[in-house]
């Protein structure tokens, strides 16, 4: 019990609610920061985002232009080109750096799209019972088992190539797992007696969803979104590798696509393959580690016994 009752007279109910949220956030941060791997992941992500944002300030975009490339053809790393050059003589370092922008943009947007779709469908399927739920569940189960990459390939083949298409293709194919998760969580929350109490107090559907279900589901959604970004980045690189990316933008998958077209693997040009792949691995791992640490904050059962 706290002694904040004294200050109560000066605080409005809204301010009280925000104070409570602030305390909850601080507690969550304390729990998160006790996870070493989570902190490392967060650090990597902050760095990646900064690099992506600062690329136009710190480097020269001209280096991406094939016609203005200054390096030799597929040259190994040297003093000028720390990570070597691609088939057109562009710096692999510069390409990988700029690739961060597109890969993060697509990864985050696609993950958001999929999580938003999943949350809406998940809550509706759980809250409204009977046939609404039955129909939605049928659809969710269908998309859940459908090989999502095959569907994404199909979508990005028939739509105009571009960043928007890739975001839509990934977002539209990866939402079912979020929907399942949100549905399960909503069902657990709605089985709690405080929902019954809220109904008995006179609360309607909207009141229950907004005041009780959403606040309980959102942290889970946030965790899911964090993990989904990693998956989306891998999916983006896969689509780009298959030649379905935006040919006018530099992404990590796109570099690897070029490397395949130029037979870099057979030519032994490891500097062409390693940097973009390592970048994908590190950023995806960082998102995964962050997501897992957040999961532990939410679910005390996963915590290590002290």
């Amino acid at each position: 019990m706290s002694d904040e009752g004294v200050s109560l007279k000066t605080l409005s109910p809204r301010a009280l609610a925000w104070q409570r949220r602030g305390r909850a956030a601080a507690a969550a941060w304390r729990e998160f920061s006790s996870s070493k791997s989570g902190l490392v992941g967060l650090g990597v992500l902050v760095l990646a985002v900064l690099l992506a944002l600062l690329a136009p300030v710190l480097s020269n975009e001209d280096g991406l232009d094939v016609t203005k490339a200054t390096g030799g053809r597929m040259r190994p790393p040297d003093g000028n080109f720390w990570l070597g050059t691609d088939v057109d003589g562009r710096s692999i370092l510069l390409l990988t750096w700029w690739g961060t922008r597109v890969s993060l943009l697509i990864g985050i947007s696609a993950a958001l799209l999929s999580v938003v779709i999943g949350t809406v469908i998940g809550i509706i399927a759980a809250h409204y019972g009977r046939w609404v739920s039955a129909v939605l569940l049928r659809i969710v189960d269908f998309f859940l088992v459908l090989p999502s990459l095959v569907l994404a390939i199909a979508l990005s083949t028939v739509l105009e190539p571009g960043i928007g298409t890739i975001i839509v293709a990934i977002g539209l194919t990866s939402w079912p797992s979020a929907a399942r998760l949100v549905r399960a969580q909503t069902l657990t929350v709605e089985a709690r007696p405080y929902i019954e109490r809220s109904r008995a107090l006179g609360g309607g559907n909207l009141h229950i969803i907004v005041k009780h279900v959403l606040p309980a589901v959102l942290p889970l959604v946030f965790v899911n979104a964090t993990l989904a970004v990693g998956n989306a980045i891998v999916a983006e690189s896969t689509l780009a590798f298959l030649g379905l990316g935006d040919p006018f933008q530099t992404s990590w998958g796109g570099i690897l696509h070029n490397a395949t077209v130029d037979s870099a693997a057979l030519a032994g040009a490891w500097w062409y393959l390693l940097p973009p792949g390592v970048a994908i691995g590190v950023v995806v791992l960082a998102f995964t580690l962050c997501g897992r640490a957040l999961e532990t904050v939410l679910n005390p059962r996963l915590r290590e016994p002290r």
Partner: peptide, 17 residues
């Protein structure tokens, strides 16, 4: 987790090299 974070095709290319 590290393997899980790698794109399949990339790992294949690296193994091939």
């Amino acid at each position: 987790l590290a393997f899980w974070s790698m794109p399949t095709f990339w790992l294949g290319m690296i193994l091939l090299t």
